[in-house]
Amino acid sequence: MTDVNPKRLQKVHSSKDDDDDEKCQTYVITGEDHTLAGALNLMLHKNPDVRSAGYSIPHPLENKLMLQIAVRQKAKTTSDEVFKKALNDLNNQCQHILKTFEVACEMYKEKAGVNYSEDERMDVS
């Protein structure tokens, strides 16, 4: 499992909810939109320790999203750990999709007899 780059997390700020509990927090992520939020929300809902998760974008002109995570009280984890796991799971899934796509492209090229030079290849990294 690959870890999330700490520099990327500088755009994430968290605030504990009223009860000052580590099992329920709201994260404010700047510079992201529904694309990341929807995917993270899906990953969070797959985790059995998550009681609820949801996101909102306060205003279309504000460049931020708010993601709220509540972990089950009996779970032996915190909302921070669940959030990091969701980010890592999403990253791993994206890497798998990219590798599968690249393999399929290479198989197609071999079957079709296409031979692209390195200069003509699309860089998706």
Rank of each mutant, 00 (worst) to 15 (best):
E32N: 09
H13L: 08
D21L: 06
S14V: 01
H45N: 03
M43Y: 01
P58G: 07
L40Q: 01
N41V: 00
D21W: 06
R51D: 08
D19T: 14
D33I: 15
T35G: 12
D20S: 07
L42N: 07
D33Q: 11
T26G: 06
P48M: 09
H45I: 05
E62L: 14
D49S: 10
S52A: 15
D18V: 03
L40S: 03
C24L: 00
Y55S: 04
L44D: 00
D21Y: 02
L36I: 15
V12T: 04
T30Y: 01
D20K: 08
K16S: 02
L36N: 06
K11G: 10
I57V: 11
N41E: 13
N41I: 07
D18S: 11
L42R: 14
S56D: 12
P58S: 12
G54L: 11
G54W: 14
Y27F: 10
V12Q: 02
D20H: 08
I29C: 13
E62W: 15
N63W: 10
C24N: 05
K23E: 11
K46F: 00
D19Y: 03
K46T: 04
I29R: 07
L44Y: 01
S15C: 12
P60N: 07
Y27K: 02
T30A: 02
K64H: 07
D17E: 04
L42G: 06
L36P: 11
E32D: 03
